[in-house]
């Protein structure tokens, strides 16, 4: 059974369709990359996956359970699916450590003392051991983005969604964040990411989906999409990006 499955998902804003008839399966431990032009609906699709946006039609299954059922309480589902945004969205009035600890404390009713070793290990792992007490505005973009990733990981999600998490970063900082993704993949995390980093998608993805005007025009292993794209839209997009 697929970890996450989208079946004929449709989503629009004020009658304007943004995603149409999207079907997609994400197997456990896979990294799926969504690529496509700006405005093609990548962010919207990710936000639908963790129920930040209700979908209009179709269904989303998490481990076989229909999580798009409108009657369902979204909070327990969101805890199982972490998301990291392009603009970090750290809470500016809290230190890095407090940012990370807020949700485990409130949602899992953990106390600071028992959380601290775990949190510390996460900060260590991502090279931020000495930045735990810093506030977001005292951190570089790359550091903030890694704290945002730690914040999502601290809830021990089963799936992680990443929305263009490197596009607000200087080129030198992109590498350190992509390293984090490689690490997560090697540990078997199931991930879906919207990205403009074609090199990274080719190297690390198990599956690449090309979105065009809210539709998945083509999907397949990275070699197929990047080396032998079939749809003319995919070819046009890749040509424009590689240039």
């Amino acid at each position: 059974m697929a970890r996450l499955e989208l079946r004929n998902v449709a989503k629009g804003f004020g009658g304007v369709p943004v995603c149409r008839d999207i079907s997609l399966t994400v197997e456990s431990g896979d990294m799926v990359c969504l690529i496509g032009a700006s405005g093609s609906g990548k962010s919207t699709l990710l936000r639908c996956m963790n129920l930040l946006e209700p979908i209009d039609d179709g269904a989303i299954y998490l481990d076989g359970q229909d999580i798009s059922e409108p009657e369902l309480d979204p909070q327990p589902i969101r805890r199982r699916i972490g998301i990291v945004f392009q603009s970090f969205n750290l809470f500016p009035h809290m230190s890095a450590a407090e940012n990370v600890m807020l949700a485990p404390r409130r949602v899992h009713h953990r106390d600071r003392a028992s959380l601290l070793p775990e949190i510390q290990a996460l900060f260590d792992r991502f090279g931020l051991a000495d930045r735990m007490q810093h506030y977001p505005d005292q951190l570089s973009g790359g550091q903030q983005q890694r704290v945002a990733i730690i914040r999502a990981l601290a809830m021990q999600p089963e799936i992680m969604l990443f929305d263009e998490i490197t596009s607000a970063l200087d080129p030198q900082l992109v590498g350190e964040v992509l390293d984090v993704l490689r690490q997560l993949k090697s540990q078997g995390m199931t991930m879906v990411l919207a990205t403009h980093e074609m090199g990274f998608a080719r190297e690390a993805a198990d599956k690449v989906c090309f979105l065009h005007q809210g539709v998945i025009v083509e999907e397949g292993p990275p070699e197929q999409i990047f080396d032998a794209p079939e749809a003319p839209e995919t070819r046009a997009f890749l040509q424009a990006v590689v240039k």
Partner: peptide
């Protein structure tokens, strides 16, 4: 709105989002 979205995405309840994320920033 992105602060609200980030807080909700962590699975916090609506009351907690208000109390820990929105109000402290708003009052300041």
């Amino acid at each position: 709105a992105s602060q609200r979205a980030a807080a909700h995405s962590l699975g916090l309840s609506g009351a907690d989002v208000m109390r820990f994320v929105i109000l402290p920033q708003a009052v300041r």
